[in-house]
């Protein structure tokens, strides 16, 4: 706050006479008040964010916690009944929850791992001097700019059983049609393809930005030492990208735990159950199904909080591993 720092009162307030201890209690509130007035424009500037954050993040967050301790249906919100942690214990014994957790994990792995590997490779290629480099970079980001709904509906058609393009191609190659939507693995692969298609470019761009920050001397030195392009990639690029890779892993993992739009729209019939046998029901979709198809808000709120805790644990584990690694390397 530059406005405040050259205020002459600073000295007077922050340096009370050392030989006057009884004055201290009175000085403390005064000092605080003074700082508040001095900084009031600062508070005013940040207030809009915090008001919005309070209204649309903090309040729903706390209200969800409150709801999760009640048995409540949307049709009878006033009839909420306090059940303590009943919804949570029920959730832990609920086969649908574990099924959704499993699906979230497998879809998460099936989408995140190829996505980040492809992104790294793409970024490496785009880091070379290519003709039409800008075009490729923009093209890569296009899927990210596409709405999930539109992309999923198109992919849903491609993966259709009877009239889908992919099955038509398979049949053209003399292979059997695959009922993508009905199978457990096939539906999860199909959804992972949508996620990968959408996010690969975004991650590649982040990697690319980080790669351009790597000093060229390192590559020159490596070239002088006779390292091949591949060796340079492994021994120079990847180590230098470590913090970036960690960042993308964390972001992708959070995205994977919250995966919702793709499995919701993939069914193509508006169902919220993630397939006839819940074969691609993710945690996000389960929460929606509980809350907005079955109208059991308490249960859905408990699932929401469970998801939040899972994300905290996963991100915490990532951070811990990263810190260990960093320390070990030092």
């Amino acid at each position: 706050m530059t406005i405040a720092s050259d205020d002459p009162r600073v000295a007077a307030v922050t340096a009370p006479p050392p030989d006057a201890p009884p004055a201290a209690p009175a000085a403390a509130p005064r000092r605080r008040r003074a700082r508040l007035t001095r900084n009031r424009w600062g508070y005013a500037y940040v207030a809009p964010f915090f008001l919005l954050f309070g209204a649309f993040s903090l309040y729903p967050f706390l209200y969800t916690a409150y709801i999760s301790l009640h048995e409540v249906r949307l049709s009878d919100i006033d009839g909420a009944e306090f059940v303590g942690f009943g919804n949570y214990t029920a959730l832990l014994q609920n086969e649908f929850f574990w099924n959704a957790a499993r699906n979230t994990l497998t879809i998460g792995i099936l989408s995140t791992v190829p996505q980040l590997c492809i992104a790294l490779g793409l970024a490496h290629l785009l880091n070379y001097r290519l003709r039409g480099r800008t075009f490729f970079r923009v093209a890569m980001l296009m899927p990210y700019a596409t709405s999930i709904a539109a992309a999923t509906l198109v992919f849903g058609q491609l993966f259709g059983h009877d009239y889908g393009l992919i099955n038509a191609l398979l049949q053209g190659l003399g292979l059997d049609r695959v009922d993508w939507e009905a199978g457990t693995l096939s539906s999860q692969v199909a959804i992972s393809v949508i996620v990968t298609w959408r996010w690969t470019g975004y991650n590649a761009l982040i990697y690319l930005a980080a790669m351009q920050a790597i000093p060229n001397d390192l590559y020159e030195a490596a070239t002088l030492d006779g390292a091949s392009r591949w060796k340079q990639f492994i021994h120079v690029t990847v180590p230098a990208l470590k913090p970036t890779i960690l960042f993308t892993i964390v972001v992708s993992t959070i995205g994977a735990v919250q995966l919702f739009g793709e499995p919701l729209l993939f069914s193509g019939n508006g169902m919220t159950n993630g397939g006839a046998s819940n074969q691609y029901q993710t945690l996000g979709l389960l929460m929606y199904d509980q809350g907005w198809t079955n109208f059991r808000l308490g249960q859905a709120a408990a699932t929401a909080w469970a998801m939040f805790l899972i994300i905290l644990v996963v991100v915490g584990a990532c951070a811990l591993i990263a810190r260990r690694r960093a320390r070990a390397e030092r």
Binding site: G160, D162, Y163, G268, N269
Partner: peptide, 16 residues
């Protein structure tokens, strides 16, 4: 087919 789904709608035209 799942009634009221996309493939179901297409199936009317295709005489499925």
């Amino acid at each position: 087919l799942t009634q009221f789904g996309d493939e179901w709608n297409s199936a009317f035209v295709n005489g499925a």
